[in-house]
Design a binder for these strands. Structure first.
Length: 523
RNA sequence: CCCGGGGUGGAGCAGUGGUAGCUCGCCAGGCUCAUAACCUGGAGGUCGCAGGUUCAAAUCCUGCCCCCGGAACCA
């Protein structure tokens, strides 16, 4: 029986286009999704946009556009960016969709019926210009005024509904205790445990007098506050509210099948919402709590936090333009430890791309294929059914190690292992055996050397499939392996499926009669 | 103030008591099949600071300094 695996990423505000920081999370999630699919899991990979915020409707108004139309346009732009990075999402939810609205209302009603929502009043700093409350922090940072309107906000009291978060303190702590892996990486755990132990307060989950947003079903004067709405995308997308008649539900999806989520990928800044508020909401509504929340690190640009004023915001297309989607994915997965922070710089991109991808990997393919093409007319006669002599002696261990790092989202370490344990030995083997010399005196021996060298290329291609989506396939399809590319899994790396035909180079050759460079050098 | 994480050659990291290691970059040599690639060797660190424990500390203890993070719309 295949195991289901439900992966989500945080939904993004569509106020501005995604940058390399936003994309970092999606790539990490995508690598996990692709890895799990290879390993035979039934994967559902969800992404989306968070549209029910005042900021979105205000931004649309500024542009003199209809809010919904603006959201749809932005959602299309986001999806375009994700596709350009080969992010293999299965579903993309917009929180303005009927399936989300219906699901949210069902959920909040359920929590209300279960007695965890009560009416009260909220004291806050209110800005007339914004027609909304500002946080103390916001006002303080702006020097005592509204950061947008530069006017001192007034204290205002307003009726609202509270979610009784504080009632779940014990259950939350017990859940953390029993599920040691719930919060990843471990460094985030303490923070949350302390938080829940010390300052768990009930939260205001409504707003008054807003047009855009989701109505509170038991009091339609109110709209649902964004966090109480946003988190629900994880369940509304998979049919939390689907009805037998199909009305408002996600087509063909089954909440029962997919929930709970196996991994929520989020930024470290919103860990608390996902590790405290969200599980409490699940308890309150009587649904299961997600299995794992993974709070990844942030990306700086040129050593600085990305900001408009510094002008160092980098958009994905700028990077793919010179490194391609695979170069892009490799850079961030290899250079930036997923649990921690990482930096992007153009210098570093060039170095990493040329050295790791061009020199170590791409050039290995070139030197091996060219020797086979020019000396053996592409075919290594008599190799059908043969087993190559291993260049990597402990390949099974390497696979085991890489697999462990992939599952722990330690992508940078997984990649480092592949380079050090597989590609370096392969390049050294070429140098030691000097097939270009050997071929002049012993063509049979050389044939075996080359045959052996195809093996680490096959291993690397398979192990890299989740990261180097396109070039791993190009490497694999340069040869006539019996096992189809669509079917390869990590298990095939050490347990090489029998090769039916003589090994040969089947890549399309360029005008020079060679296999074209995989990763042309960035000047 | 308090809590958590961290400070190791130019950059990024390993390393929890016993001659300080890896990747990239840099320099030199080798080689020439290959994307001027690849291989080998080298320079470069008083392991944040100051004490202490020990035959022996990056590694244990104490104090201090610095950086990052620490609930409300923020990737």
């Amino acid at each position: 029986m295949t195991r289901k695996f439900f992966i989500t990423t945080a939904i993004d505000y569509p106020n501005s286009r995604p940058h390399i920081g936003t994309a970092f999370e999606k790539i990490g999630a995508d690598v996990q999704a692709r890895y799990r699919r290879m390993e035979g899991y039934d994967v559902h990979f969800l992404m989306g946009n968070d549209e029910n915020t005042v900021k979105v409707s205000r931004r649309a108004a500024e542009l003199k556009r209809d809010t919904q139309e603006y959201c749809n346009d932005m959602a299309n732009q986001f999806k375009e960016v994700w596709r350009a990075l080969d992010i293999s999402f299965d579903d993309f939810i917009q929180t303005s969709e009927p399936r989300h609205h219906a699901g949210c209302q069902k959920f909040i009603q359920k929590v209300f019926d279960n007695g965890y929502i009560y009416k009260g009043s909220y004291d806050g700093l209110y800005c007339d210009g914004c027609e909304g409350f500002k946080t103390e922090k916001e006002v303080k940072e702006a020097g005592g005024v509204c950061p947008d309107h530069k006017v001192a906000p007034v204290v205002r009291q307003e009726p609202c509904y509270f979610f009784a978060l504080s009632k779940f303190q014990d259950r939350l702590l017990e859940y953390y205790e029993k599920n040691a892996d719930f919060i990843q990486p471990d460094s985030r755990r303490n923070e949350i445990v302390t938080l829940v132990k010390t300052e768990l307060r009930d939260v205001n989950i409504t707003r008054l007098g807003q047009q855009w947003g989701i109505r509170v079903p038991f009091d339609p004067e109110f709209t649902i506050y964004v966090w109480f709405d946003a988190l629900l995308n994880y369940i509304t997308a998979i049919g939390y509210c689907s009805k037998p008649n199909g009305d408002a539900g996600a087509v063909g999806m089954s909440f029962e099948k997919w929930w709970p989520a196996d991994i929520h990928f989020i930024g470290k800044d919103i860990t608390r919402f996902h590790c405290a508020l969200w599980p409490a909401m699940c308890f309150a509504a009587g649904i299961e709590v997600p299995t794992l929340v993974y709070g990844h690190g942030f990306i700086t640009s040129g050593g600085e936090k990305m900001s408009k004023t510094l002008g160092n915001i980098v958009e994905p297309h700028e990077v793919t333009a010179i490194a391609g989607a695979d170069g892009y994915r490799y850079y961030f997965m290899r250079e930036c430890p997923f649990p921690g922070d990482g930096d992007f710089s153009w210098d570093r991109l060039k170095i990493v791309f040329n050295s790791d991808l061009g020199k170590n990997l791409g050039n290995l393919l070139s030197r091996v294929t060219t020797l086979i093409v020019s000396n053996y007319s592409c075919v290594l006669d008599g190799t059908a059914g043969q087993t190559p002599s291993p260049i990597v002696l402990n390949l099974a261990n390497v696979v085991k190690e890489v697999r462990g790092h992939m599952e722990a989202c330690q992508y940078n370490i997984a990649l480092e292992r592949i380079w050090r344990q597989i590609l370096d030995p392969a390049n050294q083997y070429v140098d030691k055996n000097e097939p270009w010399k050997l071929v002049k005196t012993d063509k049979d021996a050389t044939r075996l050397v080359l045959f052996n060298l195809i093996e680490p290329l096959r291993a690397a291609a398979i192990l890299l499939k989740p990261v180097l989506v396109r070039s791993s396939e190009t490497i694999y399809r340069s040869f006539n392996f019996t096992q189809p590319w669509e079917k390869v899994s990590y298990a095939d790396v050490a347990n090489r499926p029998a090769q039916a035909d003589d090994m040969r180079v089947i890549a399309k050759l360029d005008e020079r009669g060679k296999v074209p460079p995989l990763f042309p050098v960035i000047k």
